[in-house]
Each structure stands twice: as C-alpha cells, then as structure tokens.
Design a protein around this nucleic acid. Structure first.
Length: 567
RNA sequence: GCCCCCGUAGCUCAGUGGAUAGAGCAGAGGACUUCUAAUCCUAAGGUCGCAGGUUCGAAUCCUGCCGGGGGUGCCA
C-alpha cells in the first residue's frame, strides 16, 4: 500500500545519506509516516529527523564534529529521496519534518488502476493462506439472542470479513455450551412448560427460565411429539428435553443470525469434547505434567505455575464431580489448535469475561501452544435506549429485548453500522429511536446515499451509451477530485489497522469520511454533460466515479452492509 | 481491598508519540431551472476529568487522585 511505499522511500534516503557520509551511521528506528491535518504540510509527513537528532549529535560529538539540527537532517534526507513517480515535491518544515506532496498525475492514474482491478486494488496479502478461526457470539443456547449478542455478531463477523478479504482462510465458529448447570435448568424448565401445556399443575424451577419463549419451544415440541413424552419420568424427560430444546434453540439462533447476515461455518458442541475423548486426553496429559492437584474435594489446575504474576489456580473438576468450564475451555482449545490445527484463533467475548481472558495463556502454555496464537477480543456492553430513556434488560424477570426485535425495528444495515462505529472498549448507548430515524441524523444513510448517487451517475452514463473505458485521467486536477483519490488510497491502511488492532470501528468512520469526500466532489464537479467539449473530462470523471463505487461498495461489504443502487 | 475498561465541543463519538485536537447531530446564517437536497457552504462552539512525571514534542506513555462501568477461586 501507499503508506509502505512512502516509508520505503524515506528509509532508502536515510540509508543512502548514511552511506554517502551525510549522516553518521547510527541505528535507525523503524520509519513512520503520517498524513498531516493541514494541506500546506503535504500529503505525507515524516518526523524521523526529530527522532534521531540525539543519536546523530552524540555520534557527531564523538567524532569531534559540529552539532546538527533536526531541520538540517530533514534537508539531508529529503535531498537523498530516490526518484519516484509518487511524489511531486518535498519540503522540510520546522522543527524537523519532511513533508511530501503526491504527484497529482500519479494520483489521478490510480482511478484507472482501481477500475481495472476492482476491490482487489484495496486488498492486502496479509494472511498468506494462514488458517484462522473466529469464534464469536457463542451465547448460551438457552433462549433467543438478546441485543447484546448483536454487537458480538457485528464485531466477530466484520473481523472475519476483514481477514478473509486480506489473505486469511477464515472459519466462523459458534461454540455451543450444551452441557453444565444452565443447560439442566433450561431442560427442566422446558419439561415443566411442556407438562403445563397439557394442564398439569407443575411449576418451573425457582432459578429457571421464566421467559415466554420457553412456552413457544414447548409448543414446538408439542406440535412435533404430541403427548408422547408426557409419560416420561423426570429422570428420563430432562435429557430428552435438553436435546429437543437444544435443537429448537439452535435453529432459532441460526435464523436470527442469518437475519443479521451472519453465517457460521461450524457449530461446535461442548458436549462432544466429553464424548470423543478430548477431555480424557487432556486430563491425562495435565496429570502427567503434574498440573493437577486435589483440594477441598475439587481437582485444581496449577495455573499459577504458568503465570508469573499470579498465585491463583483454577478449578478443573468441581467438588460435585462435574468438570468446570475451565476444563471445557482447555479441551476446546486443545481441539482448536492441536486436533484441528488452526494457525490462529480469535475469540470475541464480552467484557464480563475479562478475567477468563487473562487466564487463557496459562492453559495454552500447559498444552505447549504458543499463547500468541490466541487472541481474545473483548468488547463492552450495549445499553438500549428509546428517545433517551433507558430500556432495562433483566434476564431474571424474563423481560429481554431480543436481537430480532431490534433488527426488525431498525434494520440490519443501521444496526450493524451503529454497533460497529464505537471502539470495542467503549460502552454503547444504543438509541432505537435514533437508529431507526431515516433522516440526516443517521450517518448510515449518508454513506449508502453516496453509493446510490454514484450508481445513479454510472447508470445514466450507460443509458447515454458513454464508453469511459479509455480516458485521459490527467484531466483530474480539481482539489475535490484529488482529495477523493487520496481518501480512497487510505482504505488499505484503514483495513490493515482494523486487523492489527482488532478494531472494526475504524471502518464506519472511514466510510463516512469517504462518502463525505465524494459528496464534496459531486457538489463541485459535474460529471455528465451535454456539451461535447466536456466529453474527455466526463470520461475521466466517470472512471473516478466508478473507482469510488468500488471503494464504497467494498467498505460496506466489509461491514456486512448493503450497497444500494438507488434509495 | 485488588484487577480491567471508560472520562475529548451542548449531545453521540473518532483521534493510542507529531505540527493549529476532528466528524456527525443539535443551535446561528446562507445556497435548489440538481448527474438523487437523505445535499452543500460559512461562522460559532474545547482547562482533552484533575495533579505530577517521561519526551525535542503528550488527548495519546508512566504515577497518584476524582467520577462512571465491569470483574474478583467450584455459573459460563
């Protein structure tokens, strides 16, 4: 990408200056460049002289030479920049910046390159075929997804889209917690609801699931099985209802997530880890390594030996004989890394799992897996509002706002955009009224509108049988045209940073920025014209518009949003 | 008690070592014989929670404090 090319130019110039004796041969830090905020400071800027002045002066002093200044160093490096079609000119600025101005002709030519290559122009060979699993959502299968799960779905799916568009082979996985205490309570609640449908006077457990959706599941089972299960004893019924309930819930989860445009490649059963011997295997392994010990009737895992700063161990098998969730996690990650051999695994978890996240490296070390191969992406909660008024979500009262309800009201595009537009660590106050507003208060539609406009221009051009495949792009000289090109070239940088920092929120901000830059061009420059003397400029601008369509559509695709042809 | 995250314009948020801190919305003023006005332009709006420190340079890194949220050995 362009940024790397600029960095390379500076690096070469600095090395050459050292080789030629303009600069003493000090160790150079990795070169960084940035886009200045002010136009007079160029398109790209580098502060390397300020970073190396101390080392340079020390070396000069040793040699008995006169001190230098950052400005002088900037000048020396600028003079040694290799010949390049990228840059038109370079300036040095106080106190020691090297400011570079892109060559407008080169910039304009990129419109043609983008039209030629399509979205591939913006894709990066980051993954090089590395196999990465993104595990996300993974909410307990005890009911429909509540709206908090939508944020997880948006972040996880967008990370997956970012990765698969940039050279990774991605698998999307949903981990089903289909064993353990919660599942038993769920099964018992469902069994009671089923019995109630036949008029039996039984109560759901005190700590059960009071939501009305449980009655819906019971009705589904009633519809499929009739009264044939009524004769079962509690001991027979609960495993059976666990199985039937699980099927009903996962079918609903898949439906809801499909509505969110999220499709999992694999639904992984926690229970399967106990059926296929994985748990037994790691149990033996850890025991042989002396990682397990007994205390208070429970089996503990010596996590502390793997975490230097911690003296805390973890329950492996609870005193009631049931493996704890940590045991499942160890078996699960053994399966991910050893059995299935993923190069890299990303888990997307809500912030209430922060402690669990901190304990993951210990288990990986015990399994002889490099902890670097696992990334936990934590995100904060979503609170729902309607016109400034918070909507309380309480699972206990059974009063929950499902993801489906919100999606039906605000639409998938708006939901995904708004959920993505905050950094992972920030809590989101999601206002349904604002999200649903289809007006200028809502940036979602601004971005999509830009795409619709672009599409409209191209459609009209085709109707007029204009062929813009050949164009003199050097005619693109307007400030807004060059700004638009410059903004498009930023897309790969945004993508690379979003992956680097696991921060999909950079995308909606970029998309809004790109849409704005386009709309300013649209306002300033007429594309289509009846005047034949405008034909050449018109063709050049059509290439620019087509390039914009590619960039906008790709940005929207990464966020899982529609790119409408008209609105 | 200890650990993690957040605190930036009236509101919602970007900005995670660069120059004069940015968007959107709201509020003020202006622009439609339009390739889609769901638009554009102009002006206004700030002790970057507070106090120290590191650095040529700090909203950004370190320490302490204040305020909000979360977590804290057998639920996942």
């Amino acid at each position: 990408m362009l940024q790397d090319q600029i960095i390379e130019l500076i690096t070469q110039a600095a090395r050459k200056a050292q080789k030629k004796g303009d600069l003493p041969k000090t160790a150079l830090p990795p070169v960084t460049v940035n886009r200045p905020k002010h136009a007079e400071q160029g398109d790209w800027s580098c502060a390397l002289p300020l970073q190396i002045i101390r080392d340079v002066n020390n070396a000069l002093k040793e040699r008995g030479a006169e001190r230098s200044s950052p400005l002088q160093i900037a000048d020396i490096i600028a003079k040694r920049l290799p010949e390049t079609p990228l840059l038109a000119r370079t300036e040095v600025a106080k106190p020691g910046f090297i400011n570079m101005f892109l060559n407008p002709a080169w910039l304009a030519a990129q419109a043609g390159e983008i039209c030629q290559s399509g979205a591939d122009y913006f894709r990066l060979p980051l993954g090089q075929g590395k196999r990465v699993q993104v595990e996300f959502v993974s909410a307990n299968p005890t009911g429909p997804l509540h709206f908090g799960g939508a944020r997880n779905a948006a972040i996880g799916d967008t990370l997956a889209r970012l990765l698969e568009n940039n050279g990774y082979i991605v698998q999307r996985e949903y981990y089903i917690n289909d064993r353990g205490t919660q599942m038993n309570i769920f099964a018992e609640t469902l069994w009671r609801r089923y019995q109630q449908l036949f008029g039996l006077s039984v109560d759901i457990p005190d700590d059960g699931y009071p939501g009305a959706y449980m009655i819906d599941y019971a009705r589904q089972i009633q519809a499929a099985q009739g009264d044939s299960l009524l004769a079962l004893s509690d001991e027979q019924a609960i495993p059976r209802f666990r199985e039937l309930g699980l099927a009903a819930v996962t079918a609903e989860l898949a439906d809801d997530l499909a509505m969110m445009r999220v499709f999992f490649d694999n639904w992984f059963s926690e229970q399967s880890l106990y059926e296929d011997g994985t748990f037994e295997h790691i149990n033996t392994l850890l025991r042989e390594q002396d990682d397990l010990y007994m205390k208070d009737d429970a089996v503990w895992f010596r996590a502390s030996r793997y975490l230097p700063k911690s003296d805390r161990d973890e329950v492996f098998i609870r005193s009631n004989g049931e493996p704890g969730y940590y045991a499942s996690d160890i078996a699960y990650h053994y399966n991910k890394f050893i059995t299935r051999g993923f190069d890299w695994v990303i888990n997307v978890w809500a912030v209430d799992h922060q402690n669990q996240a901190a304990r993951m490296p210990a288990m990986l070390k015990a399994l002889h897996i490099d902890p670097e191969r696992l990334t936990i992406v934590l995100y904060d909660f979503v609170t729902l509002h309607r016109g400034g008024q918070e909507i309380k979500i309480s699972k206990r009262s059974g009063e929950l706002i499902t993801m489906r309800e919100v999606l039906e009201e605000v639409g998938v595009d708006a939901a995904r955009y708004l959920l993505l537009s905050h950094s992972n660590e920030a809590r989101i106050d999601f206002d349904i009224e604002l999200a649903v507003a289809q007006n200028n208060e809502n940036p979602v539609y601004y971005v999509q509108y830009a795409h619709a406009r672009v599409s409209s221009i191209l459609r009209k051009a085709r109707e007029q049988a204009i062929d813009w495949g050949e164009a003199d792009l050097s005619l693109l000289q307007d400030e807004t045209e060059l700004a638009l090109l410059h903004k498009m070239l930023q897309l790969p940088e945004v993508v690379a940073e979003a992956i680097e920092r696991f921060s999909p929120h950079l995308l909606p901000h970029y998309a809004l920025d790109l849409a704005r830059t386009f709309t300013k061009f649209y306002d300033a420059c007429r594309v289509l014209s009846n005047d034949p003397t405008d034909a050449a400029l018109s063709r050049a601008r059509l290439q620019l518009v087509q390039a914009t369509q590619i960039a906008l559509a790709y940005s929207l695709e990464l966020m899982g949003m529609n790119a409408p042809e008209s609105m």
